[in-house]
């Protein structure tokens, strides 16, 4: 009985809040944000809308700036598939549809993970992703519920 209860509890915890997903090499991948962002977690559907460039501000009214790596980079691919649960080609199509129909803008694409971390840390409203081991105190990690 106790075992079942513990198991259920663990299962529901692991389902409700995911702070990290694994990249291909087994290292942990997290959603990072500028420390000025006044929340510590975000829902999956909101995160998908932000990275698909459909939502430009948080519920607090804080404007967001999305930073990504190139489509073919392992980190972007792992983030798309494991965290957002969409394929990079779907994200690419969503951006092109937003940009060329006047409904949104393209995300800011940077050349490396270091540049991405730096951009998120120095841009108010910055949001992106990184390996957990590379997260510094200049960033905050957003849990995905």
């Amino acid at each position: 009985m106790l075992r079942t209860l513990t198991f259920t509890l663990l299962l529901s915890l692991s389902l409700s809040i995911v702070t990290a997903c694994r990249a291909d090499d087994g290292r942990q991948l997290v959603v990072i944000a500028n420390p000025g962002i006044d929340q510590s977690s975000i829902s999956l559907e909101t995160l998908r809308a932000i990275f698909a460039m459909r939502q430009r501000t948080l519920s607090s009214g804080q404007p967001l700036h999305v930073f990504v790596l190139g489509d073919a980079t392992p980190l972007h691919e792992a983030f798309s598939k494991r965290v957002l649960g969409v394929y990079p080609h779907q994200l690419r199509l969503a951006w092109e549809r937003a940009v060329f129909s006047g409904t949104g803008q393209a995300p800011n694409q940077v050349a490396s993970e270091a540049a991405l971390i730096n951009a998120v840390a120095s841009t108010p409203g910055g949001i992106g992703y990184a390996l957990r081991s590379h997260v510094t105190e200049r960033l905050q990690v957003l849990a995905v519920d």
Binding site: I42, E45, T46, R54, R56, S59, R97, S101, G102, T103
Partner: peptide, 28 residues
């Protein structure tokens, strides 16, 4: 104008010449 951006609800409006949302492909 994106008037409302809640976690569960987003509301906005476009004024001007907007692309007609028609099927999957019409807007682009």
């Amino acid at each position: 104008y994106q008037a409302l951006t809640r976690d569960d609800l987003v509301l906005g409006l476009q004024v001007g010449r907007f692309k007609n949302p028609f099927g999957f492909y019409n807007q682009t």
